[in-house]
Simulated assay, not measured.
Amino acid sequence: MLVWRNFDPSGFGATVVSLACAFVLGGLIGLERQYRQRTAGLRTNVLVATGAASFVALGMRLNDAHGATQIIAYVVSGIGFLGAGVIMKEGAQVRGLNTAATLWASGAVGAASGAGFFAEAAALAAFVVAGNTLLRPLVDFVNRLPVSATSTEAHYAVHVVCRAEDVSEVRDLLFQEIERANYPVRDIEILSENEDLVELAASLIPTSADSDELDAVVAALEKAEVVESATWTVSTTT
Rank of each mutant, 00 (worst) to 15 (best):
M1I: 15
V3Q: 12
V3N: 14
N6Q: 15
D8P: 05
D8G: 04
D8S: 11
G11C: 05
A14I: 07
V17N: 03
C21Y: 08
A22K: 08
A22F: 05
F23G: 10
V24W: 06
G27P: 00
L28K: 06
I29P: 05
Q34P: 07
Y35S: 10
R36H: 11
R36C: 08
R36I: 10
R43G: 03
T44H: 11
V46G: 05
L47A: 04
L47P: 01
L47E: 04
L47D: 02
S54L: 13
A57E: 00
R61E: 09
L62I: 01
N63L: 09
H66A: 15
G67E: 01
A68F: 05
A68E: 02
T69R: 08
Q70L: 14
A73F: 09
Y74D: 10
V76M: 07
L82V: 09
G83E: 04
K89N: 07
K89L: 09
L97N: 03
T99Q: 02
A101T: 10
W104M: 00
W104K: 00
A105D: 06
A105R: 03
S106P: 02
A108D: 07
A108G: 05
V109C: 06
A119I: 12
A119W: 14
A119L: 15
E120N: 14
A121N: 09
A121Q: 12
A122L: 04
A123I: 12
A123R: 08
A130R: 04
A130V: 13
N132V: 13
L134Y: 12
F141P: 07
P146Q: 01
A149N: 13
T150M: 14
S151W: 15
T152R: 15
H155R: 11
Y156T: 10
V158R: 02
H159M: 12
C162S: 09
R163G: 14
A164H: 15
S168C: 08
D172K: 12
D172W: 08
E179L: 15
N182T: 12
V185A: 07
V185P: 09
R186C: 08
L191G: 02
S192P: 09
E193C: 13
D196G: 10
L197C: 11
L200W: 07
L200T: 01
L200P: 00
A201W: 10
L204V: 00
I205T: 12
P206K: 06
P206F: 08
T207W: 13
S208M: 12
D210L: 07
D210F: 14
D215C: 11
A219Y: 15
L221E: 03
K223E: 13
K223R: 14
A224T: 01
E225C: 04
T231P: 08
W232E: 02
T233Q: 14
T237F: 14
T238V: 14
